[in-house]
Amino acid sequence: MRILAARWLTPAGLLAVLAGVLLIHFAGLDAAPALVPGAGVLVLNLLAALFTERGLHRNPGLLLFHLGLLGVTLLAAAGYLIRFEARIELVQGGRFDPAALQAVKAGWLHPDRLEGVRFIQGAFTVDYAPGLARGHTRSRVLLPDGRGGWTEREVGDDRPLIVDGYRFYTTWNKGFALVLSWLPAEAPPMTGAVHLPPYPGIEWKQENEWTIPGTDKVLRLRLELPPRPADEQAWQLRGDRRTDVHLRVQFPGGERRLDPGETLRLDEGVLRFEEVRGWMGYKVYYDPTLPWMFWTAIAGIAGLAWHYIRGTLFPLRKAAAFRAGT
């Protein structure tokens, strides 16, 4: 116990954490393996010091701060195991579908409750200041109102959508999607969206490929948008249904320019260009330890503030004089 509580072990542990941070930054090491050795030493050192260090017992503020540090460290570790992170692109009118999540990172102990998450993407707007400086993002989503209907909510910037503990954050990643209907000769028709690259980030390349179902025939689709306002002007991107656009389709043996509602007859069936809608990219995050970690950190800082600020700016002798009414 005495060795674990040794005072020199704290600077040693802090140095190990410092080395871990440098490894994360310069060698690209994952945070967990880089920090666990140093943090482990510090946790053991602190646990032992709680029993043996009289200085901590005599100073309740300092004790609270160190308990707060211990709590934050353990909660961060728990959060790492329970956490869920992913990205998703949702087209206007599209329902959230866990199968469409990308770049999924889930902790070992993540309780998968994504099947219960329900919402529908609405229209969105993004303001741009002169110089193409991104301003406010306002994304409307529809949530179940509990009475069989839907209620609208606006999210964006510092306001995520929180459903069943899952947080959905709007991102810089957004753009347009082509809504296409495919009417095959001998199968039921289907309608879907082909997402184009982010706009205006990659506005010069608003194109994508689409493979005709059941074949290996690839169509090249390119969206022709009216020019947006010049960079020197403020403007607003509207991720809403658009009809002021054209679709250029390259198919084996030819090319056609379609207006919304027009069709293209191919050997395998008919392709109808319905319209263009916006898609919004979300970051999905789940970590139920966040509020616990926040309040634990606040309690720890309050203890440290009590310990240092009271004694420095408001010395005890003044407090005593005040109590004595002088």
């Binding site: 306001r159 995520p160 954050y169 240092y308």
Partner: peptide
């Protein structure tokens, strides 16, 4: 003592920054 006071405010800065980063960037 002033270094200790610095630790109080630096810790507050980190926590406030973390809350802000969570809200803004997930």
């Amino acid at each position: 003592r002033w270094l200790g006071i610095g630790l109080v405010f630096h810790s507050t800065m980190l926590v406030a920054g973390a809350v802000w980063a969570q809200d803004a960037w997930g």
